[in-house]
Amino acid sequence: MGKLSAFFKNVVSEMRKVSWPKRKELTRYTIVVLSTVVFMAIYFGIVDLGISRLMEWYLAL
């Protein structure tokens, strides 16, 4: 049980050393991540649609 309590004491100690982002930075990072995810989803959706249409065309021959 002593190892477990020592582990959590170390966790708390390390968490105090963490440099947390300010609200403005966090908002900016969140917007960057969300816009990247949306862009990649649209990109891969278009690529998937193109490949599907190409395969439909090829199989219809």
Rank of each mutant, 00 (worst) to 15 (best):
K9E: 12
I42H: 02
V38Q: 02
W57V: 05
R16H: 12
L4V: 11
S13D: 15
E14T: 11
R28S: 09
F44H: 04
R16W: 11
V18S: 00
A6D: 15
M55S: 08
P21Q: 00
P21F: 00
K24D: 06
S5C: 04
V38C: 02
G45I: 01
M1E: 13
A6I: 04
T27L: 15
R28E: 12
Y58D: 04
S35G: 05
F44A: 02
R23K: 15
E25Y: 01
D48E: 07
W20S: 10
Y29I: 09
F39V: 10
A60E: 08
T30V: 04
K24C: 00
R53A: 06
V33D: 08
T30L: 06
I42G: 03
D48R: 07
M1R: 10
E56Q: 07
R53C: 03
S52G: 02
A41I: 06
I42T: 09
V32P: 05
S19D: 15
Y58M: 05
K22P: 06
V33C: 09
W57L: 09
I42C: 03
V32Y: 14
R23I: 11
L61S: 10
N10S: 03
S19R: 14
M55C: 03
I51C: 02
G45Y: 01
Y43S: 07
K22V: 12
M1S: 12
G2H: 10
Y58I: 05
F8W: 14
S13W: 08
A41Q: 04
M40L: 14
L61T: 08
L34N: 06
Y29D: 14
R23V: 12
V18T: 01
K17Q: 14
V47H: 03
M40R: 05
R16K: 15
W20G: 05
M15W: 11
A6F: 06
K22D: 15
E25I: 01
S52Q: 04
M40Y: 06
V37F: 10
V11Y: 01
R53V: 07
T27R: 15
Y29L: 14
L61Q: 09
M55K: 10
F8Y: 13
R28V: 04
S19I: 14
V18G: 00
E56P: 00
R53G: 10
R16S: 13
I42N: 03
L61C: 02
L4S: 11
I31H: 12
D48S: 11
L49M: 07
V37P: 07
F7K: 11
M15L: 15
F39E: 06
A60V: 02
V12Q: 13
I31V: 15
L61I: 06
E14P: 03
E25C: 00
V18F: 00
W20H: 12
V47Y: 03
M40S: 08
V47W: 03
S5Y: 09
E14S: 12
Y29F: 12
W20K: 14
E14M: 13
V33H: 11
L34D: 04
T27F: 14
N10D: 09
G45T: 01
I46V: 12
A6G: 04
K17R: 13
V37L: 15
S52A: 03
L49I: 06
R23Q: 14
V47P: 01
M55G: 01
K3S: 14
I51T: 07
